[in-house]
Design a protein around this nucleic acid. Structure first.
Lengths: 255, 255
DNA sequence: GGCATGGTGTCATCGAACTGTCATCCAACT
DNA sequence: AGTTGGATGACAGTTCGATGACACCATGCC
């Protein structure tokens, strides 16, 4: 028992890093309400909390950006008209930063404001709803957006200093961008789904190429080599472990 | 061809040995088909049963979750478009529960639905196949996934301060990593399956080398020696017991 | 169309790791 | 002491993964 625990403990070090997005997922989704009218804000908070969301508030555009940056909510409910910084401007700034590019935003607009101009103008919002609105309508939009956004969150995979962004199809190692061909990308993607685990060439062919495609087993070697070449900068440890007669694994310890 | 067959043969040996201890494993693998189109469902059932699987069915997402929870199938064939709860959503819910996190899932999608978005977007499925598909393609995927899922059960083995991790293909003694050649690895793996039990050289040849391979019996001595050398650091007790005229065993007591 | 480019699968070759065998030595039993 | 069976070191042959080269295809660009 003690031994097993020891092994687990030593090997779970990196896992805690890669588990971060999952930990947040467990909690209720957090909605940031940006609304300068206090009575409306209170109403929104009340209803959203009843629906099971955590609610944070911001009264103007400046505060909104601040809160988005530091508490990374899962969804933004954004009033169109705001003091200090208009809703459109907030939207634009949020879209500009890579960390918040995919944050779902719902705009709250007054009926008088022309909907066409909102729709036509590229605000960057994902959805909008005109005031006054019913709570069911809002709830439906919130649910839909959160559901859509969810996979994006888990599209991010991390192992050691390697980050694979599934939605952007992008790979980094130690912050530096890494260019991979399509096959190498899928290969890495698959290996990152089961870090440390050893896969035979046949496993990899099935998973990366497809079960019904016939390709020489040795071809895997070549792609592993290309993956290594792209991933390992001079001086860095090789992240691909070769296990003789067994296959390959994504791993730090070469032995 | 020859290559693949060789791989099959050698790797299936380990699998039969590392069969899960549970009683229900003797049965054929059970596949749950989640498909709302009755004619397709019938076709799938017919073909899968012909391939030797047990087939269960569910017509929508709700029923799918229910059946997964109560009958714990070995593999899920999941239609992308479903009434009441989409395939993606089913997938996500299954992945959320620890008991079903490793359940292999194959998605069935229509050709029009973008394949990239399925593969790229992290749906949580292990594989997918576009609709219309040939039965061989499906069979290949099912086989591949079931094979991959199986060895997970027999991951970690331990004897005294020795830990052998089957999925990672790693060996440790007293926390220190131990490097073994393929033969020594299989030898240790076999010995660890029956600690303390004494095996004759012939037993070991059959189990580790294979019944049909002809190798000099004395060769076992050499590999036992290599295993000892790798396993026993200076000052540690020898974990391999020699029983004169009988064979070897994994044991702590020297006598 | 023709050309460049980047990606892919296959092959021949190289070198390191592994393997099986033997001769020799040593310890245990008779 | 003599015999038997295991341990050990050496070694030659083999296997297996790494590597570089190359021909083939797409795709995009002039």
């Amino acid at each position: 028992m003690t031994q097993l625990d020891a092994v687990h403990a030593s090997s779970s070090r990196e896992q805690t890093m890669s588990r971060r997005p999952a930990a947040r997922e467990e909690a209720r989704p957090r909605v940031l309400v940006v609304e300068d009218d206090p009575s409306l804000a209170v109403m929104l908070r009340y209803n959203l909390e009843k629906l099971g969301y955590q609610v944070e508030e911001a009264a103007d555009g400046q505060e909104a950006l601040l809160r988005v940056a530091e508490s990374a909510p899962d969804l933004l409910l954004l009033d169109w008209m705001l003091p200090s910084l208009s809703g459109i401007e907030v939207c634009r700034q949020i879209r500009r930063r890579p960390q918040t590019r995919d944050l779902p935003i719902i705009m709250l607009t007054a009926r008088t404001e022309e909907q066409d101009s909102i729709r036509g103008l590229n605000t960057g919002a994902d959805d909008y709803i005109t005031k006054p609105f019913g709570m069911e309508a809002l709830a439906a939009r919130v649910r839909a957006l959160l559901r859509r956004a969810q996979p994006q969150a888990s599209g991010l995979r991390q192992f050691a200093d390697i980050v694979l962004d599934g939605t952007e199809h992008r790979v980094q190692r130690a912050g530096r961008p890494v260019h991979l061909g399509p096959t190498e990308y899928r290969l890495l993607e698959f290996l990152m789904q089961h870090p440390r685990r050893v896969f035979s060439r046949e496993d990899l062919l099935n998973a990366v190429w497809g079960a019904d495609i016939h390709v020489e087993a040795r071809t895997v070697d070549v792609h592993i080599r290309r993956l290594r070449k792209a991933l390992n900068a001079p001086g860095e440890v090789d992240v691909v472990r070769t296990v003789r007669t067994a296959g390959y694994a994504l791993d730090l310890e070469p032995v």
